[in-house]
Design a protein around this nucleic acid. Structure first.
Lengths: 239, 239
DNA sequence: TTAATTTCCTGATTTAGATTATATTTTTGT
DNA sequence: ACAAAAATATAATCTAAATCAGGAAATTAA
Protein backbone atom coordinates (compact mmCIF):
# COMPACT_ATOMS: atom_id res chain seq x y z
CA UNK A 1 0.00 0.00 0.00
CA UNK A 2 0.92 3.63 -0.40
CA UNK A 3 2.83 2.87 -3.54
CA UNK A 4 4.79 5.82 -4.83
CA UNK A 5 2.77 5.75 -8.04
CA UNK A 6 -0.49 6.35 -6.19
CA UNK A 7 0.59 9.59 -4.69
CA UNK A 8 1.48 12.54 -6.90
CA UNK A 9 -1.99 14.01 -7.31
CA UNK A 10 -2.98 17.61 -7.80
CA UNK A 11 -4.60 19.86 -5.21
CA UNK A 12 -7.63 19.93 -7.53
CA UNK A 13 -8.26 16.28 -6.83
CA UNK A 14 -7.48 16.43 -3.13
CA UNK A 15 -10.19 14.88 -0.94
CA UNK A 16 -9.73 17.85 1.38
CA UNK A 17 -10.60 20.39 -1.34
CA UNK A 18 -12.76 23.22 -0.08
CA UNK A 19 -11.98 22.58 3.56
CA UNK A 20 -8.41 23.83 3.63
CA UNK A 21 -6.68 27.19 3.57
CA UNK A 22 -6.31 27.38 -0.20
CA UNK A 23 -9.98 27.00 -1.04
CA UNK A 24 -10.51 30.59 -2.13
CA UNK A 25 -7.62 30.65 -4.58
CA UNK A 26 -8.25 30.84 -8.32
CA UNK A 27 -7.43 27.90 -10.56
CA UNK A 28 -4.08 29.29 -11.67
CA UNK A 29 -2.99 29.94 -8.09
CA UNK A 30 -4.13 26.51 -6.93
CA UNK A 31 -2.17 25.03 -9.80
CA UNK A 32 0.87 26.93 -8.58
CA UNK A 33 0.43 25.58 -5.03
CA UNK A 34 0.02 22.13 -6.51
CA UNK A 35 3.39 22.44 -8.20
CA UNK A 36 5.11 23.55 -5.03
CA UNK A 37 4.06 20.66 -2.86
CA UNK A 38 5.25 17.12 -2.32
CA UNK A 39 2.83 14.35 -1.42
CA UNK A 40 4.05 11.84 1.10
CA UNK A 41 2.54 8.61 2.30
CA UNK A 42 2.96 7.79 5.99
CA UNK A 43 2.31 4.48 7.64
CA UNK A 44 0.67 4.20 11.03
CA UNK A 45 3.14 5.26 13.68
CA UNK A 46 5.46 7.22 11.39
CA UNK A 47 6.31 10.78 12.41
CA UNK A 48 5.98 13.85 10.18
CA UNK A 49 8.10 16.03 12.44
CA UNK A 50 9.58 15.89 15.91
CA UNK A 51 9.47 18.29 18.84
CA UNK A 52 12.64 20.39 18.97
CA UNK A 53 13.44 20.20 15.26
CA UNK A 54 13.51 23.29 13.03
CA UNK A 55 10.52 23.71 10.72
CA UNK A 56 11.06 23.44 6.97
CA UNK A 57 7.50 23.83 5.88
CA UNK A 58 3.85 23.15 6.43
CA UNK A 59 1.87 19.92 6.23
CA UNK A 60 -1.58 19.59 4.74
CA UNK A 61 -3.44 16.41 5.62
CA UNK A 62 -5.07 14.80 2.58
CA UNK A 63 -6.05 11.45 4.10
CA UNK A 64 -5.86 9.93 7.55
CA UNK A 65 -5.57 11.23 11.10
CA UNK A 66 -2.47 12.75 12.64
CA UNK A 67 -1.88 13.23 16.34
CA UNK A 68 0.06 16.23 17.59
CA UNK A 69 1.74 15.44 20.90
CA UNK A 70 3.95 16.96 23.52
CA UNK A 71 6.20 14.82 25.66
CA UNK A 72 7.07 15.80 29.22
CA UNK A 73 10.29 15.18 31.15
CA UNK A 74 8.90 11.96 32.56
CA UNK A 75 8.14 10.69 29.04
CA UNK A 76 4.39 11.10 29.42
CA UNK A 77 2.85 11.91 26.07
CA UNK A 78 -0.11 14.23 25.84
CA UNK A 79 -2.12 14.77 22.69
CA UNK A 80 -2.69 18.49 22.17
CA UNK A 81 -4.56 18.23 18.88
CA UNK A 82 -5.75 15.78 16.25
CA UNK A 83 -5.47 16.84 12.62
CA UNK A 84 -7.73 15.28 10.04
CA UNK A 85 -8.42 15.69 6.32
CA UNK A 86 -8.12 19.32 5.24
CA UNK A 87 -6.28 20.36 8.38
CA UNK A 88 -2.84 21.87 8.29
CA UNK A 89 -0.12 21.24 10.84
CA UNK A 90 3.31 22.68 11.44
CA UNK A 91 2.08 26.10 10.31
CA UNK A 92 2.44 27.57 13.78
CA UNK A 93 6.21 27.17 13.91
CA UNK A 94 6.77 28.69 10.46
CA UNK A 95 5.36 32.04 11.45
CA UNK A 96 6.55 32.18 15.04
CA UNK A 97 10.10 31.33 14.04
CA UNK A 98 10.35 28.72 16.76
CA UNK A 99 11.37 25.10 16.68
CA UNK A 100 8.54 22.60 16.57
CA UNK A 101 7.22 22.33 20.10
CA UNK A 102 5.24 19.23 19.34
CA UNK A 103 5.60 15.94 17.50
CA UNK A 104 3.23 14.89 14.70
CA UNK A 105 2.58 11.18 14.23
CA UNK A 106 0.24 9.30 11.89
CA UNK A 107 -2.24 7.27 13.95
CA UNK A 108 -3.25 5.41 10.80
CA UNK A 109 -1.93 5.25 7.24
CA UNK A 110 -2.06 8.78 5.88
CA UNK A 111 -1.30 10.98 2.88
CA UNK A 112 0.11 14.37 3.70
CA UNK A 113 1.29 17.18 1.43
CA UNK A 114 4.40 19.09 2.35
CA UNK A 115 4.71 22.72 1.31
CA UNK A 116 7.98 24.54 1.59
CA UNK A 117 8.32 27.29 4.21
CA UNK A 118 9.61 29.95 1.80
CA UNK A 119 6.81 29.39 -0.65
CA UNK A 120 4.17 29.67 2.08
CA UNK A 121 5.64 32.88 3.43
CA UNK A 122 5.62 34.35 -0.08
CA UNK A 123 2.07 33.13 -0.72
CA UNK A 124 0.78 34.77 2.46
CA UNK A 125 2.22 38.09 1.32
CA UNK A 126 0.57 37.75 -2.08
CA UNK A 127 -2.76 36.16 -1.27
CA UNK A 128 -4.74 37.76 1.54
CA UNK A 129 -7.30 34.94 1.44
CA UNK A 130 -4.63 32.43 2.43
CA UNK A 131 -3.49 34.68 5.27
CA UNK A 132 -7.09 35.07 6.46
CA UNK A 133 -7.71 31.34 6.31
CA UNK A 134 -4.57 30.66 8.33
CA UNK A 135 -5.68 33.27 10.87
CA UNK A 136 -9.10 31.61 11.00
CA UNK A 137 -7.57 28.17 11.44
CA UNK A 138 -5.25 29.31 14.22
CA UNK A 139 -8.11 31.20 15.83
CA UNK A 140 -10.36 28.17 15.94
CA UNK A 141 -7.50 25.98 17.18
CA UNK A 142 -6.76 28.54 19.90
CA UNK A 143 -10.43 28.64 20.85
CA UNK A 144 -10.49 24.85 21.13
CA UNK A 145 -7.27 24.85 23.16
CA UNK A 146 -8.60 27.47 25.57
CA UNK A 147 -11.80 25.51 25.96
CA UNK A 148 -9.78 22.45 26.89
CA UNK A 149 -7.80 24.44 29.44
CA UNK A 150 -10.95 25.54 31.21
CA UNK A 151 -12.38 22.01 30.93
CA UNK A 152 -9.41 20.68 32.88
CA UNK A 153 -10.24 22.99 35.72
CA UNK A 154 -14.01 22.87 35.61
CA UNK A 155 -14.87 19.31 34.69
CA UNK A 156 -14.05 15.92 36.14
CA UNK A 157 -12.82 12.94 34.16
CA UNK A 158 -16.23 11.47 33.32
CA UNK A 159 -17.43 14.84 32.04
CA UNK A 160 -14.30 15.35 29.96
CA UNK A 161 -14.68 11.86 28.51
CA UNK A 162 -18.29 12.50 27.46
CA UNK A 163 -17.17 15.82 25.99
CA UNK A 164 -14.38 14.11 24.05
CA UNK A 165 -16.78 11.54 22.60
CA UNK A 166 -19.13 14.33 21.51
CA UNK A 167 -16.25 16.27 19.92
CA UNK A 168 -15.08 13.15 18.09
CA UNK A 169 -18.64 12.68 16.90
CA UNK A 170 -18.55 16.17 15.38
CA UNK A 171 -15.16 15.75 13.75
CA UNK A 172 -15.16 12.06 12.83
CA UNK A 173 -18.72 10.82 13.18
CA UNK A 174 -20.22 9.01 10.18
CA UNK A 175 -23.61 7.37 9.94
CA UNK A 176 -23.38 3.67 9.14
CA UNK A 177 -25.74 1.56 7.02
CA UNK A 178 -27.56 0.42 10.16
CA UNK A 179 -28.08 4.04 11.21
CA UNK A 180 -25.58 3.98 14.06
CA UNK A 181 -23.11 6.84 14.39
CA UNK A 182 -19.59 5.50 14.11
CA UNK A 183 -16.44 7.37 15.10
CA UNK A 184 -14.22 7.11 12.06
CA UNK A 185 -10.95 7.25 13.99
CA UNK A 186 -9.05 4.56 15.80
CA UNK A 187 -7.50 5.76 19.02
CA UNK A 188 -6.02 3.50 21.65
CA UNK A 189 -7.32 3.87 25.21
CA UNK A 190 -3.93 5.25 26.10
CA UNK A 191 -4.32 7.96 23.44
CA UNK A 192 -7.86 8.84 24.47
CA UNK A 193 -6.69 9.08 28.06
CA UNK A 194 -3.87 11.41 27.11
CA UNK A 195 -6.30 13.74 25.33
CA UNK A 196 -8.46 14.29 28.39
CA UNK A 197 -5.53 14.04 30.76
CA UNK A 198 -6.20 10.94 32.78
CA UNK A 199 -4.80 7.46 33.35
CA UNK A 200 -5.79 4.79 30.82
CA UNK A 201 -7.21 2.59 33.59
CA UNK A 202 -9.50 5.41 34.69
CA UNK A 203 -10.58 6.07 31.12
CA UNK A 204 -11.35 2.39 30.56
CA UNK A 205 -13.41 2.30 33.74
CA UNK A 206 -15.58 5.22 32.63
CA UNK A 207 -15.85 3.81 29.11
CA UNK A 208 -17.24 0.61 30.61
CA UNK A 209 -19.66 2.70 32.62
CA UNK A 210 -20.84 4.47 29.44
CA UNK A 211 -21.25 1.12 27.70
CA UNK A 212 -23.28 -0.28 30.59
CA UNK A 213 -25.51 2.79 30.59
CA UNK A 214 -26.07 2.25 26.86
CA UNK A 215 -24.63 5.60 25.76
CA UNK A 216 -22.00 4.02 23.54
CA UNK A 217 -21.26 0.68 21.91
CA UNK A 218 -18.00 -0.86 20.90
CA UNK A 219 -16.74 -3.18 18.20
CA UNK A 220 -13.06 -3.72 18.72
CA UNK A 221 -11.50 -0.29 18.70
CA UNK A 222 -14.42 1.25 16.89
CA UNK A 223 -16.81 3.32 18.98
CA UNK A 224 -20.48 3.97 18.22
CA UNK A 225 -22.44 6.83 19.75
CA UNK A 226 -25.86 5.48 20.70
CA UNK A 227 -27.34 8.12 22.97
CA UNK A 228 -26.06 11.64 22.32
CA UNK A 229 -28.55 13.25 24.68
CA UNK A 230 -27.34 11.01 27.46
CA UNK A 231 -23.75 11.96 26.78
CA UNK A 232 -24.62 15.66 26.79
CA UNK A 233 -26.22 15.13 30.15
CA UNK A 234 -23.28 13.09 31.34
CA UNK A 235 -20.86 15.79 30.17
CA UNK A 236 -22.88 18.40 32.02
CA UNK A 237 -23.01 20.63 28.96
CA UNK A 238 -25.83 23.15 28.92
CA UNK A 239 -27.46 24.41 25.76
CA UNK B 1 -8.12 59.18 37.39
CA UNK B 2 -8.54 58.14 33.79
CA UNK B 3 -9.99 61.50 32.92
CA UNK B 4 -11.32 61.63 29.39
CA UNK B 5 -8.79 64.36 28.54
CA UNK B 6 -5.86 62.05 29.28
CA UNK B 7 -6.81 59.49 26.74
CA UNK B 8 -6.97 60.38 23.05
CA UNK B 9 -3.36 59.78 22.14
CA UNK B 10 -1.89 58.59 18.85
CA UNK B 11 -0.49 55.15 18.12
CA UNK B 12 2.88 56.88 17.63
CA UNK B 13 3.00 57.70 21.31
CA UNK B 14 1.59 54.37 22.51
CA UNK B 15 3.71 52.75 25.23
CA UNK B 16 3.20 49.47 23.42
CA UNK B 17 4.81 50.77 20.20
CA UNK B 18 7.04 48.23 18.50
CA UNK B 19 5.59 45.29 20.37
CA UNK B 20 2.22 45.10 18.67
CA UNK B 21 0.92 43.94 15.34
CA UNK B 22 1.22 47.29 13.59
CA UNK B 23 4.91 47.80 14.21
CA UNK B 24 6.01 47.23 10.63
CA UNK B 25 3.61 49.73 9.12
CA UNK B 26 4.87 52.97 7.57
CA UNK B 27 4.12 56.29 9.20
CA UNK B 28 1.17 57.08 6.96
CA UNK B 29 -0.42 53.70 7.58
CA UNK B 30 0.12 53.96 11.36
CA UNK B 31 -1.48 57.38 11.22
CA UNK B 32 -4.46 55.82 9.47
CA UNK B 33 -4.78 53.13 12.15
CA UNK B 34 -4.53 55.85 14.76
CA UNK B 35 -7.49 57.62 13.24
CA UNK B 36 -9.60 54.48 13.21
CA UNK B 37 -9.24 53.61 16.84
CA UNK B 38 -10.92 54.73 20.03
CA UNK B 39 -9.03 54.81 23.30
CA UNK B 40 -10.94 53.73 26.38
CA UNK B 41 -10.03 53.82 30.04
CA UNK B 42 -11.17 50.89 32.16
CA UNK B 43 -11.20 50.72 35.91
CA UNK B 44 -10.20 47.60 37.79
CA UNK B 45 -12.94 45.03 37.46
CA UNK B 46 -14.61 46.53 34.37
CA UNK B 47 -15.20 44.22 31.42
CA UNK B 48 -14.16 44.90 27.83
CA UNK B 49 -16.36 42.19 26.39
CA UNK B 50 -18.42 39.28 27.63
CA UNK B 51 -18.55 35.61 26.63
CA UNK B 52 -21.44 34.98 24.24
CA UNK B 53 -21.61 38.49 22.81
CA UNK B 54 -20.94 39.23 19.13
CA UNK B 55 -17.56 40.80 18.36
CA UNK B 56 -17.49 44.35 17.01
CA UNK B 57 -13.76 44.78 16.85
CA UNK B 58 -10.36 44.19 18.31
CA UNK B 59 -8.77 45.49 21.50
CA UNK B 60 -5.18 46.60 21.80
CA UNK B 61 -3.86 46.95 25.34
CA UNK B 62 -1.94 50.16 25.85
CA UNK B 63 -1.61 50.10 29.64
CA UNK B 64 -2.55 47.62 32.36
CA UNK B 65 -3.31 43.91 32.54
CA UNK B 66 -6.44 42.24 31.24
CA UNK B 67 -7.58 38.76 32.18
CA UNK B 68 -9.36 36.59 29.63
CA UNK B 69 -11.64 34.12 31.37
CA UNK B 70 -14.09 31.36 30.64
CA UNK B 71 -16.90 30.56 33.03
CA UNK B 72 -18.25 27.03 33.39
CA UNK B 73 -21.78 25.89 34.18
CA UNK B 74 -21.01 25.80 37.88
CA UNK B 75 -19.81 29.41 37.78
CA UNK B 76 -16.16 28.50 38.19
CA UNK B 77 -14.00 31.03 36.39
CA UNK B 78 -10.80 29.95 34.71
CA UNK B 79 -8.24 32.37 33.32
CA UNK B 80 -7.18 31.23 29.89
CA UNK B 81 -4.82 34.09 29.11
CA UNK B 82 -3.50 37.36 30.51
CA UNK B 83 -3.03 40.22 28.05
CA UNK B 84 -0.55 42.95 28.84
CA UNK B 85 0.81 46.08 27.11
CA UNK B 86 1.11 45.56 23.37
CA UNK B 87 -1.11 42.49 23.35
CA UNK B 88 -4.28 42.30 21.36
CA UNK B 89 -7.47 40.57 22.47
CA UNK B 90 -10.75 39.80 20.81
CA UNK B 91 -8.95 39.27 17.48
CA UNK B 92 -9.76 35.56 17.47
CA UNK B 93 -13.51 36.01 17.23
CA UNK B 94 -13.29 38.56 14.41
CA UNK B 95 -11.71 36.11 12.02
CA UNK B 96 -13.46 32.93 13.10
CA UNK B 97 -16.85 34.57 12.86
CA UNK B 98 -17.87 33.23 16.25
CA UNK B 99 -19.27 34.94 19.31
CA UNK B 100 -16.76 35.77 22.01
CA UNK B 101 -16.09 32.56 23.87
CA UNK B 102 -14.38 34.33 26.71
CA UNK B 103 -14.79 37.39 28.90
CA UNK B 104 -12.11 40.09 29.15
CA UNK B 105 -11.82 42.01 32.42
CA UNK B 106 -9.34 44.64 33.60
CA UNK B 107 -7.50 43.36 36.67
CA UNK B 108 -6.18 46.87 37.28
CA UNK B 109 -6.88 50.30 35.79
CA UNK B 110 -6.13 50.04 32.08
CA UNK B 111 -6.10 51.90 28.78
CA UNK B 112 -7.23 49.89 25.80
CA UNK B 113 -7.68 50.90 22.16
CA UNK B 114 -10.67 49.60 20.26
CA UNK B 115 -10.38 49.07 16.52
CA UNK B 116 -13.43 48.40 14.42
CA UNK B 117 -13.90 44.95 12.91
CA UNK B 118 -14.45 46.14 9.35
CA UNK B 119 -11.35 48.29 9.37
CA UNK B 120 -9.20 45.43 10.65
CA UNK B 121 -10.53 43.02 8.03
CA UNK B 122 -9.72 45.58 5.32
CA UNK B 123 -6.29 46.27 6.78
CA UNK B 124 -5.38 42.59 6.79
CA UNK B 125 -6.25 42.41 3.08
CA UNK B 126 -4.08 45.43 2.33
CA UNK B 127 -1.14 44.99 4.66
CA UNK B 128 0.50 41.56 4.66
CA UNK B 129 2.72 42.54 7.60
CA UNK B 130 -0.34 43.00 9.80
CA UNK B 131 -1.68 39.61 8.70
CA UNK B 132 1.68 37.99 9.43
CA UNK B 133 1.91 39.61 12.84
CA UNK B 134 -1.58 38.42 13.72
CA UNK B 135 -0.65 34.92 12.56
CA UNK B 136 2.50 35.10 14.69
CA UNK B 137 0.55 36.33 17.70
CA UNK B 138 -2.07 33.60 17.38
CA UNK B 139 0.65 31.04 16.79
CA UNK B 140 2.50 31.95 19.97
CA UNK B 141 -0.76 32.06 21.93
CA UNK B 142 -1.67 28.62 20.58
CA UNK B 143 1.77 27.32 21.49
CA UNK B 144 1.36 28.63 25.03
CA UNK B 145 -2.13 27.17 25.29
CA UNK B 146 -0.97 23.76 24.10
CA UNK B 147 1.87 23.85 26.57
CA UNK B 148 -0.61 24.51 29.35
CA UNK B 149 -2.76 21.60 28.22
CA UNK B 150 0.15 19.19 28.47
CA UNK B 151 1.19 20.74 31.79
CA UNK B 152 -2.18 19.87 33.25
CA UNK B 153 -1.59 16.23 32.44
CA UNK B 154 2.10 15.99 33.14
CA UNK B 155 2.69 18.21 36.13
CA UNK B 156 1.26 18.39 39.62
CA UNK B 157 0.06 21.57 41.33
CA UNK B 158 3.39 22.58 42.88
CA UNK B 159 5.15 22.18 39.53
CA UNK B 160 2.50 24.19 37.73
CA UNK B 161 2.74 26.92 40.36
CA UNK B 162 6.52 27.20 39.99
CA UNK B 163 6.03 27.27 36.22
CA UNK B 164 3.45 30.05 36.53
CA UNK B 165 5.77 32.16 38.67
CA UNK B 166 8.55 31.73 36.12
CA UNK B 167 6.21 32.67 33.27
CA UNK B 168 5.04 35.75 35.16
CA UNK B 169 8.69 36.64 35.72
CA UNK B 170 9.23 36.57 31.94
CA UNK B 171 6.14 38.60 31.11
CA UNK B 172 5.89 40.95 34.08
CA UNK B 173 9.20 40.77 35.94
CA UNK B 174 10.97 44.06 36.64
CA UNK B 175 14.16 44.57 38.62
CA UNK B 176 13.68 46.85 41.61
CA UNK B 177 16.11 49.38 43.06
CA UNK B 178 17.25 46.81 45.62
CA UNK B 179 17.97 44.30 42.85
CA UNK B 180 15.04 42.03 43.59
CA UNK B 181 12.86 40.83 40.74
CA UNK B 182 9.32 42.03 41.26
CA UNK B 183 6.25 40.71 39.43
CA UNK B 184 4.54 43.81 38.11
CA UNK B 185 1.04 42.37 38.22
CA UNK B 186 -1.41 42.06 41.05
CA UNK B 187 -3.36 38.83 40.97
CA UNK B 188 -5.52 37.53 43.79
CA UNK B 189 -4.81 34.02 45.05
CA UNK B 190 -8.13 33.01 43.57
CA UNK B 191 -6.97 34.27 40.16
CA UNK B 192 -3.59 32.58 40.36
CA UNK B 193 -5.33 29.36 41.35
CA UNK B 194 -7.68 29.59 38.39
CA UNK B 195 -4.72 29.97 36.00
CA UNK B 196 -3.08 26.73 37.07
CA UNK B 197 -6.39 25.01 37.72
CA UNK B 198 -6.41 24.37 41.42
CA UNK B 199 -8.27 25.45 44.55
CA UNK B 200 -7.17 28.72 46.14
CA UNK B 201 -6.46 26.98 49.45
CA UNK B 202 -4.11 24.58 47.72
CA UNK B 203 -2.36 27.40 45.90
CA UNK B 204 -1.91 29.33 49.15
CA UNK B 205 -0.45 26.26 50.80
CA UNK B 206 2.20 25.84 48.12
CA UNK B 207 2.90 29.58 48.05
CA UNK B 208 3.64 29.39 51.77
CA UNK B 209 5.91 26.47 51.07
CA UNK B 210 7.81 28.45 48.44
CA UNK B 211 8.14 31.36 50.83
CA UNK B 212 9.46 29.11 53.59
CA UNK B 213 12.00 27.60 51.22
CA UNK B 214 13.15 31.12 50.32
CA UNK B 215 12.29 30.89 46.61
CA UNK B 216 9.91 33.85 46.72
CA UNK B 217 9.10 36.79 48.97
CA UNK B 218 5.92 38.70 49.41
CA UNK B 219 4.90 42.24 50.26
CA UNK B 220 1.12 42.42 50.35
CA UNK B 221 -0.04 41.17 46.99
CA UNK B 222 3.33 41.84 45.35
CA UNK B 223 5.52 38.83 44.68
CA UNK B 224 9.31 38.84 44.40
CA UNK B 225 11.29 36.07 42.74
CA UNK B 226 14.32 35.37 44.91
CA UNK B 227 15.68 32.07 43.66
CA UNK B 228 14.92 31.35 40.02
CA UNK B 229 17.14 28.27 39.92
CA UNK B 230 15.25 26.82 42.82
CA UNK B 231 11.94 27.43 41.10
CA UNK B 232 13.18 25.79 37.91
CA UNK B 233 14.14 22.81 39.98
CA UNK B 234 10.82 22.90 41.81
CA UNK B 235 8.93 23.09 38.51
CA UNK B 236 10.87 20.12 37.23
CA UNK B 237 11.77 21.94 34.03
CA UNK B 238 14.83 20.64 32.22
CA UNK B 239 17.14 22.85 30.16
C1' DT C 1 -12.38 55.72 62.60
C1' DT C 2 -15.10 51.96 62.72
C1' DA C 3 -17.83 48.41 60.72
C1' DA C 4 -18.42 45.32 56.96
C1' DT C 5 -16.70 42.71 53.48
C1' DT C 6 -13.39 40.40 51.11
C1' DT C 7 -9.14 38.07 50.82
C1' DC C 8 -5.69 35.28 52.94
C1' DC C 9 -4.06 31.55 55.65
C1' DT C 10 -3.85 27.02 58.26
C1' DG C 11 -5.58 22.69 59.85
C1' DA C 12 -8.75 18.48 59.54
C1' DT C 13 -11.41 15.49 56.66
C1' DT C 14 -12.83 13.47 52.51
C1' DT C 15 -12.65 11.91 47.85
C1' DA C 16 -11.60 11.53 42.90
C1' DG C 17 -8.62 9.52 40.52
C1' DA C 18 -3.61 7.63 40.31
C1' DT C 19 -1.14 3.64 41.08
C1' DT C 20 -0.38 -1.17 41.57
C1' DA C 21 -1.51 -5.78 40.49
C1' DT C 22 -3.34 -9.44 37.71
C1' DA C 23 -5.98 -11.59 34.11
C1' DT C 24 -7.78 -11.57 29.47
C1' DT C 25 -8.01 -10.24 24.82
C1' DT C 26 -6.10 -8.44 20.63
C1' DT C 27 -2.44 -7.35 17.58
C1' DT C 28 2.03 -8.03 15.55
C1' DG C 29 5.90 -10.33 13.82
C1' DT C 30 8.01 -14.54 12.08
C1' DA D 1 -0.26 -20.70 12.71
C1' DC D 2 2.27 -19.67 16.53
C1' DA D 3 4.58 -17.18 20.10
C1' DA D 4 5.54 -12.69 21.85
C1' DA D 5 4.17 -8.32 22.72
C1' DA D 6 0.90 -4.90 23.31
C1' DA D 7 -3.58 -3.30 24.56
C1' DT D 8 -7.76 -3.89 27.31
C1' DA D 9 -10.25 -4.75 31.42
C1' DT D 10 -11.39 -5.00 36.49
C1' DA D 11 -10.42 -4.77 41.33
C1' DA D 12 -7.82 -3.12 45.52
C1' DT D 13 -5.03 0.25 47.59
C1' DC D 14 -3.11 4.70 48.16
C1' DT D 15 -2.39 9.67 47.71
C1' DA D 16 -2.67 14.40 45.93
C1' DA D 17 -5.55 17.72 46.16
C1' DA D 18 -10.53 19.19 46.91
C1' DT D 19 -13.60 20.40 50.30
C1' DC D 20 -14.93 21.91 54.79
C1' DA D 21 -14.18 24.81 58.77
C1' DG D 22 -12.54 28.77 61.42
C1' DG D 23 -9.71 32.62 62.29
C1' DA D 24 -6.40 36.59 60.96
C1' DA D 25 -5.30 40.20 57.97
C1' DA D 26 -6.28 43.45 54.62
C1' DT D 27 -9.53 46.26 51.71
C1' DT D 28 -13.48 48.77 51.11
C1' DA D 29 -17.35 51.31 52.48
C1' DA D 30 -19.75 54.36 55.56
Amino acid sequence: MNKKSDLPFKCDDCPSQGKGIFCELEDAAIQDVSEHKVVNGYKKGQTLFVQGNPPYGMYCVSKGNIKVTQVGEDGKESIVRIATEGDVIGHRSIFTDQYYNATATAIEDANVCFIDKKYILKLVQKEPSVACNIIGKLGRDLGAAEHRISSFYQKNVRERLAELLLLLKESHGVTDADGRIRLNIKLTREEMASIIGTASETLIRFMSELKQEGFIEQDGKTIFIINEEGLLDFANIAY
